[in-house]
């Protein structure tokens, strides 16, 4: 089977039932994508599949065949690195464990809705748990990205 991660192809004898998360982490070594719950409840494992945010713990790798996967490791090379910059500027992360998922989910949000209102932000981000409580700063950082883009 061949999968396409961050604009590169990876060929392998993947178990098609294995969730994308574990193929990324344990087989291909993309450990930036995190395991938090394995049940689609926390968002730590969020990646983009054909530009849609997806909980990689709950989707078998077979589903991603022929589709484009994007993970945190590739974010730097996209225009959405502005999110990473804003995360640094607002000093969002504490332990950081949820943040790959937060960032990828935010990319997914901005791809479908480049100018979300505060309520739309809250709605889109409520699937991503942060146990350290960085939520106020996530909101702030997202707002700065949105405002700067408009300017």
């Amino acid at each position: 089977m061949r999968i396409h991660v961050n604009d590169k192809d990876y060929e392998g004898d993947f178990d098609p039932n294995m969730p994308i998360l574990w193929v990324l982490r344990d087989v291909l070594g993309f450990t930036g994508t995190k395991y938090g719950c394995g049940k689609g409840l926390c968002g730590a494992c969020t990646i983009l599949v054909d530009d849609q945010p997806v909980r990689s713990c709950s989707v078998p790798v077979g589903f991603a065949e022929g589709k484009r996967i994007h993970t945190i490791e590739g974010l730097e090379n996209t225009p959405y690195r502005s999110l990473q910059m804003a995360w640094i500027k607002e000093q969002v992360p504490q332990c950081g464990y949820c943040q790959s998922g937060q960032l990828m989910n935010a990319v997914g949000l901005l791809k479908t809705n480049p100018n979300p209102t505060e309520n739309e932000i809250l709605d889109a981000m409520q699937g991503n748990i942060c146990r350290c409580g960085t939520y106020p700063r996530i909101i702030k950082a997202l707002k700065t990205v949105i405002e700067n883009k408009e300017a």
């Binding site: 993309f30 930036g32 730097e76 995360w87 640094i88 000093q91 992360p93 950081g96 943040q99």
Partner: peptide
């Protein structure tokens, strides 16, 4: 500024 956040946002902490 935190010394670890740059690694975190790249997924490499």
């Amino acid at each position: 500024k935190s010394k670890i956040i740059p690694d975190i946002v790249l997924g490499k902490h």
